[in-house]
Structures are given as C-alpha cells and as structure tokens.
C-alpha cells in the first residue's frame, strides 16, 4: 500500500531543549491512526512539524510533497481558529475557508454542519467548547485531502458531542485518506483506530495495529498503552 506520510530522521529543538529526537514514521493510505502520549510528550509538535507550523530538521513527505509549502496543500489540520476575531460569524469563517482552500468542498461542509447541528449565524464567542470543536471538525473534514490531522478533538467536551464527532469521522473520512488523531485518553476512540502511534521519551515508542495488540496481548488498548508507562510489557 502506498504511504501518505513518510518521516525520516526528524529532530526538533526549541530553546536548545530537545523535544523530538530522530523520528521515523510512515503511515499508509486509508488508515485511522491514534497518536497517543502524555501531555507535553510532543504529539501536537509532531503534527505542527508535519504541517510546517513548527520547524525541525529531517525529512517529511506528505503524498509526494516535501517542502512545507507543498505539504500544506495535502494536509488538513484542525487549527483552533485563533486567527479570527471572536465577533465573527461561523458563516464568515466558512467563507474564509472556501476562499483560501481550493480543496474545500462547501457541500461536504453543509452535510457535516447539518449532522453536527452547527448554526452558521452564531458568532465564535457564543460557541460552547463542544460546539467549537464540532465546527473545527466540520471545517477540517470539509477539505478533500490526503492527510487529516486532528489534534485532541475530544478535549474537555461532553459525551454526546464526542459521539457525534466520532460518527462524523467514520462517515466523512475519504476512503483513500489517512487520519491521525491525537488523544491522551484512548478508550473512547479505540474501536475506530486501525493503528496506534505512541510518542514517549522524545521518540516513537510504539507503532502497532490495534487488532494485533488485542490478539497478541489480550489487553484492551488503554491497558496496553498504560502498560508502556509501567514498564511491565516488552514491546518491540
């Protein structure tokens, strides 16, 4: 199967502090992959390096694009809309996306917005945490691209919103696109993951298929993940 993401020898330092060290990672086309790790382990940083929002050393290839500018056309990242004035209406944000992203599909957006019950007339400041996260998901998935990066889409939101978001991921991820979802609490999304990638000690500690973990260790994904930190399980 062709790879949608290929990272080689990626190292990242900030203020002379080593955050990620010599990372190699390839993701196949069409997968949903969980990116796990403690807070501050570097999950968000890894995503930011892929989009070119953060600058490290090493090779990152998305589809066939190697430069940061070219990669941006193949990656849809769940950015947090901080660049917008809080008084702006959702419909205005949608216009913005439609203007600047040629792969933004307005029909897809409206389907997603209907499903997630987003009201375009609301202003950004009027959105609850769950609503805001739904909007970010709808905008991110409305782009038709090769790689989707969802950074902690379930942080601090109610379980109904969480379920809706999970359903929309299953429903709207294009078959030939790959999705990387970061989370530090895996149980809720474990059934939808093909693979997990664990960032630990500045590098990728584990990259494994979830059903392989289940059949080989007999553990659920959360227990397996926690066992990495207890140091009890041999993982190779």
């Amino acid at each position: 199967m062709p790879n949608v993401l290929a990272i080689q020898g990626l190292t990242y330092k900030r203020n002379q502090k080593l955050i990620l060290k010599n990372i190699d990672l390839t993701l196949e086309t069409g997968k949903i992959v969980g990116l796990l790790g403690e807070n501050g382990a570097g999950k968000t940083t890894l995503m930011r390096l892929i989009t070119g929002s953060a600058q490290g050393s090493g090779d990152i290839m998305v589809s066939d694009a190697t430069t940061a500018t070219a990669r941006k056309a193949h990656v849809s990242f769940s950015e947090q809309l901080h660049g917008f004035n809080k008084n702006v209406k959702i419909s205005r944000v949608v216009d913005f996306y439609q203007t600047v992203y040629s792969d933004f599909d307005l029909n897809r957006y409206h389907e997603l917005a209907d499903f997630l019950q987003l009201n375009g007339e609301l202003k950004l400041l009027a959105l609850s945490k769950g609503m805001r996260e739904k909007l970010i998901i709808a905008l991110t998935l409305a782009r038709q691209t090769d790689l989707y990066l969802l950074d902690e889409p379930f942080g601090g939101i109610d379980s109904m919103s969480r379920k809706k978001i999970i359903s929309s991921i299953i429903q709207w991820k294009p078959d030939n696109a790959t999705m990387l979802i970061s989370d530090h609490y895996v149980t809720e999304i474990a059934p939808i993951l093909d693979e997990i990638v664990v960032v630990k000690d500045q590098t990728i500690a584990v990259h494994q298929k979830t059903d392989t973990i289940r059949s080989e260790s007999g553990m659920d994904i959360e227990d397996y993940y926690e066992s990495l930190y207890a140091g009890g399980v041999d993982h190779d």
Binding site: S53, T69, A70, K72, E79, Q80, G83
Partner: peptide, 16 residues
C-alpha cells in the same frame, strides 16, 4: 504581525 504566527493564515498553501 498576527498573520505571520497564526495557523489560521500560515496553514494556507502559498509560497512565503
């Protein structure tokens, strides 16, 4: 200045 460091703008695929 905000546009230079906001993901909202910098994720847009366009040459610097």
């Amino acid at each position: 200045e905000k546009a230079y460091t906001a993901d909202t703008f910098r994720l847009i695929p366009i040459e610097e």
